[in-house]
């Protein structure tokens, strides 16, 4: 098994396995780096609501494409539908918090569950239609890399590259908006536009991740690498780079592991690896880790006694 894993890690586990592994790594890179900013701007829960709000769009896009006689499972078409309902969910979330006294977390929960419920209803309807062959849309819930095509991997690679390029351009404005929006505005930054750009970048990561980790778990790939990286650095640029690196590593390792252990689903494997990285960092990170803090306390106590 070790030899198989090594092969998979070196992209030698076959053409399809290499595609999945590369796609997962690129997704992890983009989601980790964008997630650093999403988390610091306190939009983690918003990104989860956005991910759940993709489900009705996936179902509706499938129905629309099937109704027009096309292949309902065309990935690009499904992602367009997913993006549209996610954007609608965001818009309603904004309206809810702006026009009612609902606190933001409650409004987020309401949007998340409502859209997800609607999506499940639509998926059930699709299942009960006699369309000849199964739609296989459940794969978007927890990801399903088994049937990943070369075009899917290319889509993820191209999307990831665009996301990272935009993040590089916007990093200074995003960092200043996340740190002190009032000051950023006085310095001439359009913070509304910066926030919108950040949400769109986050949405793009969610859409790219639908195939690999699925809409339920994608939030973990946005948040956990960022939290992990935060334990290792006090500089936002380094945190974003590290988070991207952790995400890429987890994506690659998770995909390779699930290739070697066929019972292990890819998405959950990736998420558990990021969480393992987080746990290890909580323990061992210098300065902020539990062990480092315990050592500092012990040293201070010894000083007081001496």
């Amino acid at each position: 098994m070790t030899a198989d894993l090594l092969q998979a890690l070196l992209f030698q586990g076959g053409y399809n396995a290499a595609l999945v592994s590369l796609g997962a790594a690129l997704l992890g890179l983009a989601a980790g780096a964008v997630g650093a900013f999403t988390t610091l701007r306190r939009r983690a829960l918003t990104s989860d609501a956005m991910a759940h709000a993709t489900l009705p769009g996936i179902g509706l896009a499938f129905l629309a494409m099937a109704a027009f006689g096309g292949d309902g499972r065309n990935l690009a078409g499904l992602l367009i539908g997913a993006g549209l309902t996610a954007a609608l969910g965001l818009y309603w979330l904004q309206r809810l918090t702006d026009t009612t006294r609902l606190p933001e977390d409650a409004a987020t929960g309401a949007i998340l569950s409502t859209f997800y419920g609607a999506g499940i209803v639509i998926l059930t309807v699709i299942q009960n239609l006699s369309l000849g062959r199964p739609a296989g849309l459940e794969g978007f819930l927890l990801g399903s890399t088994a049937g990943m095509l070369k075009s899917d991997a290319i889509l993820i690679a191209a999307g990831g590259a665009v996301i990272l390029a935009l993040l590089l351009i916007l990093r200074r404005a995003l960092a200043m908006t996340a740190f002190d929006p009032g000051h950023a505005r006085l310095m001439g930054i359009n913070t509304r536009a910066a926030d919108m750009a950040l949400l769109l970048l986050t949405l793009a990561c969610v859409l790219l991740g639908l195939r690999v980790v699925g809409l339920i778990l994608i939030v973990a790939l946005l948040i956990t690498p960022a939290l992990t990286a935060r334990l290792w650095s006090d500089r936002i640029g380094v945190v974003a780079l590290l988070a991207g690196g952790i995400g890429a590593f987890a994506g690659h390792l998770g995909a390779s592991l699930s290739l070697v252990l066929p019972d292990l689903p890819t998405g959950p494997a990736i998420v558990l690896i990021t969480f393992t990285a987080f746990l290890l960092s909580v323990l061992f990170a210098p300065g902020r880790g539990l062990i480092a803090r315990a050592l500092t306390r012990a040293r201070q106590a010894a000083l007081v006694r001496a």
């Binding site: 500089r235 936002i236 380094v238």
Partner: peptide
């Protein structure tokens, strides 16, 4: 927030960068 003292001061230079 992951920012050092010098990073915060450099934010005051945004109109120049």
């Amino acid at each position: 927030f992951p920012a050092r003292v010098i990073d915060v001061v450099q934010m005051g230079l945004y109109r120049k960068t």
